[in-house]
């Protein structure tokens, strides 16, 4: 999340202004994070309406708790956590309260074919086609720069499960991309 890594002094200034009830500061911080958070949620949920709902509720919750953040606090990290938790919650409700993140045998890092060429739209489509468990782990690792340890803590799974899910997700994406190219 590149936005979070901006100089802290700027971040702190906005947070402090929010604490003082400055509406413009709330809007600034919303504009700063809205796109990243919406797309994060969408990669979890695969549904724009749900992602917008998550965005809305997460920001409200974050803003309501903004007084808990001191100057050094990483508001963005916490916001991201709220978005992730809320997205998982929505996903669980849609899947009868369970997301299948199975404990699978660890597979080694797969070798990608040399001739495979990625393009953004195809990769996005392939990610959407992944099973929930694969997609969540892949999203956190590949797009949100989470380590497998952080993913394990976030999803309450083991590190090895996270690695396994990620490698399988990657393998599946490569397979999907190759299939799509064959279709073409």
């Amino acid at each position: 999340m590149k936005l979070i890594t901006k100089p802290k002094i700027i971040e702190d200034s906005i947070i402090n202004r929010c604490k003082k009830g400055d509406n413009i500061a709330f809007e600034e911080i919303y504009n700063k994070y809205k796109k990243a958070m919406l797309n994060l949620s969408y990669r979890f949920l695969n549904r724009t309406e749900d992602a917008n709902d998550v965005l809305q509720e997460s920001f409200i919750k974050a803003f309501q708790n903004i007084s808990n953040f001191e100057n050094e606090a990483a508001f963005g990290s916490w916001l991201k956590r709220v978005v992730i938790n809320h997205s998982i919650d929505i996903l669980k409700k849609k899947k009868n309260n369970s997301i299948s993140i199975d404990q699978l045998e660890i597979i080694e890092e797969i070798e990608e074919p040399n001739d495979i060429k990625y393009d953004i739209e195809t990769v996005k489509k392939c990610i959407q086609e992944l099973p929930d468990g694969y997609r969540i782990v892949l999203t956190l690792y590949l797009f949100e720069d989470y380590s497998h340890k952080e993913i394990a803590n976030t999803l309450n799974i083991s590190e090895s499960t996270s690695k396994s899910q990620y490698n399988r997700a990657k393998k599946k994406i490569i397979q999907l991309i190759q299939d799509k190219k064959l279709d073409i």
């Binding site: 590149k2 709330f26 796109k35 803003f63």
Partner: peptide, 22 residues
């Protein structure tokens, strides 16, 4: 190409709702 993957924009109603509540 990280930024190019984030193409979705929130609907305008999202901020309106947030704003009215905060």
């Amino acid at each position: 190409n990280r930024d190019a993957f984030d193409t979705l924009e929130p609907t305008s109603t999202v901020w309106n709702s947030i704003n009215s509540r905060i």
